[in-house]
Every structure is written in C-alpha cells, then in structure tokens.
Design a binder for these strands. Structure first.
Lengths: 342, 342
DNA sequence: ATGAAAGCGCTAACAC
DNA sequence: GTGTTAGCGCTTTCAT
C-alpha cells in the first residue's frame, strides 16, 4: 500500500474526482481546458480542487509528455562576477515561460561538469545553457542526444553550435569614439592578460577607431593582469613615456580604479587632464571611484536573456547556429565629463 | 501510439530488457542493486544498458517514490553580492548528495516568490532554501504542507523556523579583539544604515570587547550608507573630533576603501598611524586597496553549506529549529600589520 | 458531456 | 534467480 512510501502523500486527481463526483479523466480535462466540459461541472471540479489544495504533479505529467519544462544552467565560473548576471538574465527569461532552471556549478572541473550533465539528462531537461568566465572558446558540451545546448558568454569551439557572447570589439570602439568625441587625441590602453580574447578584441576595437580618427593609440595596449595593482603600475609606465597622455581606456573597472589612483598620485586631474573609461560597469566600483567612472556596460544580462530565447527556440524545433554578439553601451559618469583637455 | 508524442524518445528499461533477454523488472533490480541477481545476467544487463546508452528516467522514478531529489533555492536578492556565495555553498553541499537545485530569483517581489513556490511544489521539490540580502528577518515562506524550509542569511521572523545566519556580533568582537591586541586604544566605527541588523550587531560586538578592554569606542558608531562616499565622509568627521584616532573598524570593505582614501588624504599612514579593518573579505576589493585590507570574512559559503545540511536533515525527518550562527574569521592583511601606533 | 481503460517509465510485491 | 503483475499520478483515446 502507498501508506508506506517515504514522501508526503498529496492530493491527486482521484481525490478531486471523488470530491466533485466525477471521474479522474474529467478532472484532467476540466483543469487543463482540454476536451468538452459543461461549465457547471467544471466549476464544481475547480472548487473541489481548491478545497483540497490540489496541485497537479508535474513529474507525472512530464513522464507522459516526455519533456520536463526544465533546463540545466551550467557555469564553470564558481558564480563569479561575470556569469552571475548572465545566469540572472537567463533565469529571468526562462522563468517567465514556465520553465524551471537547474543550477550547476562545475567549478571548471570537467569531471563535475560531466556528472551534472548525466544527472540532468536523467531528469530529462529540455536543454542546457552553458556559461563561463571569459570570452575564450571552450570545448563543446558532449550531449550525444537531441538535447539542445546554448553557450552564453563563453562560446563553443564548434562554430556550428549556438553561442551568445559579448561584443568586445564594439566595447573598444565605443570607448574610442567617446574619447575622440571629447577631443582627446593621446589615448593609452591598459588591460588584462593577452591570452584573454576579450582583452585583445577590446584593444583591436579601440585601435580601429583611433586609427580612423587619425590619432593612433599611444605606445601599445598594456597587457597585464586584471588587478588594481596592474592598473596603477601600467599607468605609471604610460605616463613616463607619454607625459602628454590625455585619456586612458581600461579593460576593466578595477584597472580603471588603479589608473585613477596613479593619475591622482601623479598630479593629473580626472577628467580635466586625463579622461578615464573602464569596462564592466560594475556599479559598486564605478560609482565609488573618485571621480565616478565612465564605463562600458557589456550587457551581460542581455547575453543571458538572449541565450535563453535561443534555447527556447531550439527546444521548439528552431535551432540557431553560430555566434551572436550582444550590443554593449557606454555609461557616462564624471571621469569623462565634458571639458577640454589641458 | 507514442511515436506522436513531442519529446525525444529515449531508451527505456523495456529496451534494455529486450536486448539482454530478460524482463523489465529484472533490469530494474540489476541496475539498482536491489533483489537477487546472478552476476552473469547482471553483467549482461549492464552491458546492454551501456550499449544503447540507457539513462533511467528520474521523473518516472520520482512519481513512484513520491519525492524528486530536488530542492528550490529562492533568493530575493537578484543574486547580489551576499546571496551568491550562500547559494554557491548550498548548491555545493546539495549537489554532492545527488540533489539537484532549482534556481529562483524572486527579486524581492512577493508575487514572484509565491509563483515560484507554487511551481516548485508542483514539481514536488523535497524542500526549500530561502536566502536574501540582509541579516534582517523576513516573513516566513508560506508552504502549508510538509515541505521543509531553511532560511539562509536572512532569518525567518518565526523563531521556530530553521535559520542559518552570519554571526554579526562575533564579527564586531573579532575586529575589536584584533585591534586591542595590536595595542590600539582609540577605535572608531563606520558602518551602514542603522536599520540593518547586521550594522547594529557588529557595532554591539565591537563595543563589547572595547569596553571590556577599557578603551571604549570613540564617539559612537557612525551609521550611514554602505558606500565608499560615506566611508570617506565619516572618516573625515571622525578625524575632526578625534585627531588621536588610531584605528577604524568598518562595516564593509567598500566603507573601508573610502576610509583608507580619506585617511591618506588627511596624511595618516595605514597601518602606522591608523589601523583599518573592513568586513566581507571581498577579495577583489580588499586585495586591491592601498594597503590591502584586513577584513572579517563572514563565512557566507559556510552559511549556505550548513543551510543545505539542515535541509537534508529535515528532509530525512530530523528537522532543526531556531537560529544558528556560523562562525566568521579575520583575514589579516597589511592594513593592520604589526607596528605600534604613532 | 462524461466514464472506462490503457499507457507514460519505473519499481516492488509476489509468484514460480 | 527471474518473470509477472500492479501501481505511482496524470493524460488521452475511445466508447457511451
């Protein structure tokens, strides 16, 4: 008998049926709006269901439907700064459509990732969203079945897969355009390690518009680490060989914080002497700086939302393919306030 | 016929049974290690299962078992800084035990929260973990059924509920003890809005140990906002009325960053003239400061892990009750390096 | 418009 | 040891 089973026993269609004096099948029809039901019995059934607080068992339905209305969200990023907004956006877009989201933190460990995939396939997820920390490619998720996968933020190495990523080149162009428009002509660039695609792409975008404007980048992009300390150090280097510097674009807001400190130490005023732009638009950090930092918002939330939509399309039988880049935008703050250089 | 159903058709126990020349029931036994099975047939079954890449349908099992081995993780915090490490910890502890986690961001909207609860109850989650942004109480989750709930970080207003939170008073005591041990005797305190329980508790803990040491807190706790700007402003205020100040404990790392800047502007050396302690141990922020900040790590990950364990206990029929506080610890960095004041 | 019956995939009694 | 049967909760033909 079922009295011995572990879990709590909840109301079932049968209970509702008994209470409303109908058959289980009729309850199903009434509650799902399928088939033909007389308004009065429908009302009776709905009432009965509410009285006993009936909540249909989605699991049972899923067994029958052969799909679960769930998706797996796998991050390799230990929830760090970048994947979080993406996941937030994805959850937002998915949750609206009756989909529930399984959260998995693989910590960049292929074994763990594999484990999660297996478990979730067992749970019959309708698809996966995979996200990471960087713009660098990652090996495709191996899901040898007809379960769709969308890569967010971190694209798949297989160009046929569907990936939604940030537009790093556009970020660099946006920063460059803004500085040119402000009349700056001697622009330096400080950024993270060169092996980050994001760093190289931002540098390329910046160089492109600076070249076009006839005021090429000072020196070269100063690749280093994503730390404030590097921001300070690189700024000192830049200032030494380019005392006429009037703007710096930084590959992250933390770098820009470091740059701001170094500039102040060197007696340069921001933005009067040197305009400063960061990247990430990390509010706490950008707002708290002295002065508050103009920054490029990479649209991470939108990356997540778009990835979710692409996944829903794929689940509905309309798979997308290739890499899509989400637009970024510049958030102006005091570090680039209007005011001529010098 | 099932050929018409939407979802992909996967291998079932019946397929495995056919391939291995046994009955479905036998397959179940073999694969689950229940009942008595001859080693050879078991091997044959396992082989057959692997050959057709059989993955048992967890949904079907759950219908039968009346539990899903899933839990709902509800945050009201839009994944902001504090709930993320908690959720990470919870997912970690849960994932290890074959549990999968549903991610829900209610955005502090009771309607959305209700919606998520309903949906997840339909999915027959075994329990809920509810997390938020602050140490302030929140109204209990209404789950009128025998589904356990554990509150993490943000305790339930019902003291009979099971809540796992940060030990804010201990944080204050830890900071105070450390400063006393360094020989500091003129300690100021800057923190967030007074309506944050966390702020008041940390202040109380700090005051307690300073009083005990015979060097009571300077002035009063300077309540304000959780921003760098307030950290700078409050430091200026403190310095004006207490020029002999030799240490500041800040209720957050950002506040401490602001304090550090203001101290430097005022010509005070850190830690030589004034020692500085922050709270949160937000690595990027604490490490990048000049000098790097000593900070109290509140153990958010552990809050999540413990909450998960408490939930697992409750699911196993051993519910806990009341508020549990997780230990915090001090992470020493240069802002409190050994060195007498003055 | 409603009921009876069969089936989704899996598991657990109970036979043999 | 292994097969058979019944049933988890829900849905959907197919009769009526």
């Amino acid at each position: 008998m079922n009295k011995e089973r572990p879990g709590p026993t909840r109301a079932t269609v049968r209970d509702v049926a008994a209470r409303a004096g109908v058959s289980p099948g009729t309850v199903s029809k009434a509650l799902n709006g399928t088939g033909q039901i007389s308004p009065t019995t429908r009302a009776r059934i709905v009432a009965a269901a509410e009285e006993i607080d009936f909540r249909p068992n989605a699991l049972a339905r899923s067994v029958f439907e052969r799909r679960s209305y769930t998706v797996g969200l796998i991050t390799t990023d230990s929830f760090e700064r970048f994947s979080v907004p993406v996941m937030l956006g994805a959850e937002d877009a998915l949750g609206a459509g009756q989909m529930s989201v399984f959260l998995c933190d693989s910590r960049d460990d292929p074994i763990r990732e594999r484990h999660y995939v297996e478990v979730l396939l067992g749970r019959r997820v309708d698809g996966f969203i995979v996200t990471g920390r960087t713009s660098n490619e990652r090996p495709p998720l191996h899901v040898d079945r007809d379960v769709p996968v969308v890569y967010a933020l971190t694209p798949s190495a297989d160009p046929a897969d569907c990936s939604v990523v940030v537009d790093d080149e556009a970020a660099g162009r946006l920063a460059g355009d803004h500085l040119i428009r402000l009349g700056r002509t001697a622009v330096g660039h400080i950024t993270g390690p060169e092996w980050f695609d994001a760093a190289r792409r931002r540098a390329a975008g910046l160089a492109e518009v600076l070249d076009a404007a006839g005021h090429p980048l000072l020196d070269k992009p100063w690749y280093g680490g994503w730390t404030e300390a590097w921001g300070r150090q690189a700024t000192q280097i830049l200032l030494r060989s380019n005392p006429d510097l009037d703007a710096i674009y930084c590959g992250s807001d933390l770098l820009a914080r470091g740059a701001a400190d170094a500039l102040r130490d060197a007696g340069r005023r921001i933005p009067d002497d040197v305009a400063l732009i960061g990247t990430d638009n990390w509010e706490y950090i950008a707002e708290g700086a002295r002065p508050p930092l103009t920054s490029i918002d990479l649209g991470l939330g939108e990356v997540g939302r778009l990835a979710a939509r692409r996944l829903l399309d794929a689940i509905a039988g309309q798979p997308h393919s290739g890499v899509e880049r989400v637009a970024c935008h510049l958030v102006a703050r005091a570090s680039t306030d209007e005011s001529g250089p010098h």
